[in-house]
Design a protein around this nucleic acid. Structure first.
Lengths: 357, 357
DNA sequence: GATAATCCGGTAAGCGCTTACCGGTAAGCG
DNA sequence: CGCTTACCGGTAAGCGCTTACCGGATTATC
């Protein structure tokens, strides 16, 4: 019967219980292997053995050490999730695009729990240096990584994926990593069609998201192509550059109105936050939505349905996006195989800001 | 010169690089102790030794294993954060109170990074069983826990704090655990005073948050006491029961208006989401805000300033709340000492929904 | 009674890293 | 030259858990 190991000579004050599996084994009168078997459902312990072990665990308040388990099992049962916080024009705690990321992370969390995994979160500020080093540190504490958009160059993603399994949530996959995304092009197409064909609007504007976002650039391209195909006039360009935030959207409209620029009959916004700001600025200037100018968003964050008028938008299945990202990563971790690029369908959410009743 | 350890006989497919510190040592032509010294800034390695080690690390793409480091150091450098997701009346992915929790978690993340810690997130669904077991599993993977409100009974918190350092974000502390909170009472007092004294409104309503939230009950009590002291008439009771969500707030107003009930001159909402729904329902029914009915929120989530009219609310320093919770926990982990109950000040954010211009 | 099969549980090795301790070398001093 | 001190780096033990392997006891069969 082994004794509890000697206290580690360490300059750090022991802050956690120093209880180990040896203490449980001593109290239950069995070996540490028996304790492990009972706790992990291995082997076929006698009922009496099981009872003594569970009683000792309960009385002592024993929690197995995750690091020891991870080292022994070769699996930490932790997924690392890394995302960008802020940009060069915005103080970091006001970055509203994190709403979107938070919901995706929720989906990751729920899917991870189904497999006994937990989610290790790390956000990276815009001005943070040594992003690769940071991501590597997270990788050392996890079995795989899920990287939100705008994290690393494709080369660095490929390099990272040589160290740890990586799933990206980006517009396109990088070599060596798996990718999960929504069919955003279909979403923009559906919006433009709804406005141009169903409503018959002949002028459309597009308030862009961040110019450094590949996702935004793809949306802008599809918007342009689809609008041209529908034969409508397009309002776009530098004056229509937002940054995915409500303030960015409001600033675009305020600036246009200040120069007495003409507004299009409908405005497609890069995301719901932008639409919130656009609608706010229009209302502030006495422009009726949707009677004078219709507005649409993208994402369908929970706030969208409570705006006045309720926002027509494209529902990105954010929870499913997160859950799928985890499932793809888990498949890779557990079988070595996984899909390289998974595309989730979107759904047009027609409410009232487009002009429907 | 030790060889790289033999591959572990394991039924799980190895999905991570099997690189270890032994491989780096071999490539650099030094011992594993030297590699460790270089990577951890210990001892005084020669410049030439340092270079060879760093070059080998870079060429091999080596990332130290977090579980091994944690076991050896007796410190995982991970903080576990656990929060509640959903309630009995709402499907879990629509729980908007998570906005608030997400921002607090952001504060935790930023503060944790300052100390080289990462954040292990685990949400618990309302219908999840064995919450204690779940929390214990997170505890096994972290050095300490931060528990959001509504997680465990005070007894269970005390019991948990015998296993691992615990910080709660609750209205009041539990024995054995540390606590961090905002001075919500002062916030409600400031709101009531602003409406009753500065604006001279004589009737006030309070749309409550969840009835199972101790925080909400405390706010309701202070609202009542302060309003009575200001000599105004109070509208409250079962008809004014929200659930912290926009839909909950909208439902309260819609139901009142359906029964042609009289509305107070101003409505104090338990949080900003509730205020969003209240304002939406009022606007839908042609009630002007703030001309006919003023509305205030609580929390100052980013959306608040972009509503029309911009919301007067109480700013909960959510980022600071999270950061302080982490700092308190870190103090405990590193020195064994920490404050038992930390109260952060709030700030009244006067915008336009109260009637100010 | 002897043999084979099954059940159960203990012992020892190992997961990947950290670092205390010790030894070799070189420099400085008398 | 001999002794002392400082510097640097290698060896071995250990962190807390998991589990392969083996042995003892029991049961079943001939």
């Amino acid at each position: 019967m082994a004794q509890s190991p000697k206290p580690k000579k360490n300059s750090k004050v022991p802050s956690k219980s120093t209880l180990t599996i040896y203490d449980v084994a001593t109290q239950a009168g069995v070996s540490i292997a028996s304790v492990s078997r009972v706790l992990n459902g291995q082997g076929s312990p006698r009922a009496s053995t099981r009872e003594r072990v569970m009683q000792a665990v309960d009385e002592l308040g024993f929690v197995p050490d995750g690091a020891a388990r991870a080292l022994s099992n070769g699996l930490k049962e932790v997924v690392g999730v890394v995302f960008r916080r802020g940009d060069e024009t915005r103080f970091e705690d006001e970055d509203e695009s994190l709403l979107f990321i938070d919901v995706i992370n929720r989906g990751i969390d729920v899917a991870a729990q189904r497999r006994g995994f937990d989610v290790l979160i790390s956000s990276v500020g815009f001005s943070d240096e040594n992003m690769s080093g940071r991501i590597a540190a997270v990788a050392g504490k996890a079995d795989g990584l899920i990287l939100h958009d705008r994290m690393l160059s494709p080369n660095n993603i490929t390099r990272l994926s040589g160290m740890v399994p990586v799933v990206t949530l980006a517009g396109s996959p990088s070599r060596g990593a798996m990718n999960v995304r929504c069919d955003n092009e279909a979403g923009i197409r559906a919006l433009v069609r709804h406005l141009a064909v169903d409503h018959g609007y002949t002028t459309l504007g597009y308030v862009a998201g961040r110019s450094d976002s590949p996702d935004n650039r793809a949306r802008a391209r599809v918007f342009e192509a689809e609008a041209r195909a529908a034969g409508v006039e397009i309002f776009e360009g530098q004056d229509w550059q937002g940054d995915y935030s409500a303030a960015g959207g409001a600033n675009v409209i305020a600036a246009l109105l200040e120069k007495h620029a003409e507004l299009p009959r409908a405005i497609v916004c890069a995301n719901d936050q932008t639409a919130l700001g656009v609608m706010h600025a229009l209302a502030r200037n006495g422009v009726k939505v949707p009677e004078t100018v219709a507005v649409t968003g993208f994402d369908d964050v929970p706030v969208a349905r409570h705006l006045h008028p309720p926002l027509t938008t494209v529902r990105q299945p954010m929870l499913e996006l997160g859950a799928t990202a985890f499932d793809v990563l888990y498949s890779r971790i557990s079988t070595g195989k996984a899909d390289a690029d998974v595309v989730l369908p979107i759904q047009l959410m027609v409410r009232q800001s487009c002009g429907c009743r």
